[in-house]
Amino acid sequence: MTAAAAAPGDTARETPRRGAPVFAGDVTVRTIAEASGVTTMTFDTPPAFRHISPGQFAMVSSNRDGAPLLARPMSLIATDPLEISFGYQGEGTRLIAAAEPGEKLHIMGPLGLPFAPLGSDALIVVEGAHFGTMLSLARMRHAAGEATHVLFVTRPPAQPAGPVTAGEQDAALMAMFEPYATVTAVPGDALAGALAAAGRPSAVAAGAFDHGMKIVQDWCDAEKIPGHAALQVAMPCGIGACKSCIKTFKDGRYHLVCEGPIFPIAEVAF
C-alpha cells in the first residue's frame, strides 16, 4: 500500500483542480478490517483516484436495501488500493462498515482541495472523530521523509464511541498514527498547555471539536504559525449543490465546507 500522495514539491504530485473530473459509480470492496470500532476498507481503484492528496474525500454509500438516501463523506487515506478508514457513528456508516469483500459500494470522488505544503516539521492536532484526514496527512509526510508530531486529543474514556468506549478507540487510533509520527495523548482540557510545550512547528494541521480548534487557532495566531483547519460537518451532496454543509467564517458569512474542507484556520469562526 502506498501513501495517498507524493511529498510537497515532488514533481509527481498532482494538485487537484476544482474542475478535475470526479468519478461516480459502484466500486468493489477488496478488503475490510474492523478493530475497536474503526473500520478500514480498501477498494478496486478507479483511475480518477490514482492521484489524491490528504484532505480530499469521497462520498460513500451502501447499495443495500434500506440504506440511507445520502452518502457519507469519507477521508481518502491512500490510493493503490483506494483506502478509507472510519469509526461508525450512525446507520449510514454502520451499513458501509457492514460491507463484505466483493460487495459494491457507491462512491463519488475524489472531492475537495488538499492541504497546502506544511514544511519540514509539522504539528497535527487531531481527535477521534477527525482522524481520517490527519492519518492520511501523517502517512504522506512519513513517505516523504518529513517529521510530524501528533497531539492526539483524547475523549473521556468511558464515552461511547460506536460499539466500544472512546478510551479503547482512542488507543487504537493513536496506534494507527504511531508508525508515521511521534504521538502524544492530550486530554481536551490540557490542549493549550500541550501546544505551549510543542515548540515551534513549521505549520499546524488541526481537526478537532470546535473548542479545541479555537485553542489551536489562538495559539497559531499568537505564535504566527501557519495553521490549517480540516473542517467536518454533515455533508449531504459533497459537491456544492445542496448548500447545506456550512460553517461560519470570520467574514460573517457561511462557507461551504465541501469547497475545502481544508481552510486557513485563521479564517474560521470557532
Binding site: 438516501l69 454533515a234 449531504p236 447545506s244 458569512r253 457561511y254
Partner: peptide
C-alpha cells in the same frame, strides 16, 4: 446568507 445549520436531513423516506 440562507438559514443557519442544520439545513437538510433525511426524513420519512425523503429529504
Amino acid at each position: 446568507p440562507g438559514h443557519p445549520p442544520n439545513r437538510l436531513t433525511e426524513a420519512g423516506g425523503g429529504l
